[in-house]
């Protein structure tokens, strides 16, 4: 089944609604990627979800990228799927240096756990998230292991072993 909508059409629809928001766009191995400005990200995703022509019903995945040396160190990546058009779109934006980012749980309920995972692994705090706790790691740890400055083997004392009760 082919896409019912072209990359250019998607771009035009977004550009018409948000003329200043898109910084860059590219097609890589069949995936259409748009880079947007952070201050527009919530409105754009809301528009993509509720627009009748685009109708991105599903947020397939939310993740982040740590660029380590760049000024805006983290990127947020949203992977969207429009089942109506059989079309996938990737939206990327920078995270501000204070690491506070708007949540999308009010648009897609499924973003709840995905954003908890990103918070767990990268330490990005999502403003307005209903239940921002760690997803995988124990609650007592204070690390964010997918950051580039975290060593592969961890630091001694990051994780606790169980107490040993002698017979």
């Amino acid at each position: 089944m082919e896409n019912k909508i072209t990359n250019q059409a998607v771009l035009d629809i977004i550009k018409e609604k948000f003329p200043n928001a898109i910084e860059n766009f590219e097609e890589f191995q069949g995936d259409f990627i748009i880079y947007v400005k952070t201050e527009f990200i919530h409105n754009i995703l809301k528009f993509l979800h509720y627009d009748e022509n685009l109708s991105f019903e599903q947020l397939t995945d939310t993740t982040a990228v740590d660029w380590a040396t760049r000024k805006n160190r983290f990127s947020m990546v949203y992977q969207l799927l429009s089942m109506k058009n059989n079309y996938r779109l990737r939206v990327i934006c920078y995270v501000n240096d204070d690491l506070i980012h708007p949540t999308v749980t009010d648009i897609w309920k499924g973003a709840n756990w995905q954003e908890r995972e990103v918070f767990d692994m990268y330490g990005i705090k999502f403003e307005g998230h209903p239940d921002l706790r760690r997803m995988y790691l124990p609650e007592y740890v204070e690390i964010h292991p997918l950051r580039k400055d975290y060593p592969l083997m961890g630091n001694p004392g990051d994780f606790k072993l169980p107490p040993i009760i002698e017979d």
Binding site: P145, P151, L152, F159, L161
Partner: peptide
């Protein structure tokens, strides 16, 4: 699994 979340041998506990 030589990485941070895996106990490197259960004889540690």
């Amino acid at each position: 699994y030589r990485s941070y979340p895996v106990v490197q041998g259960i004889d540690q506990f």
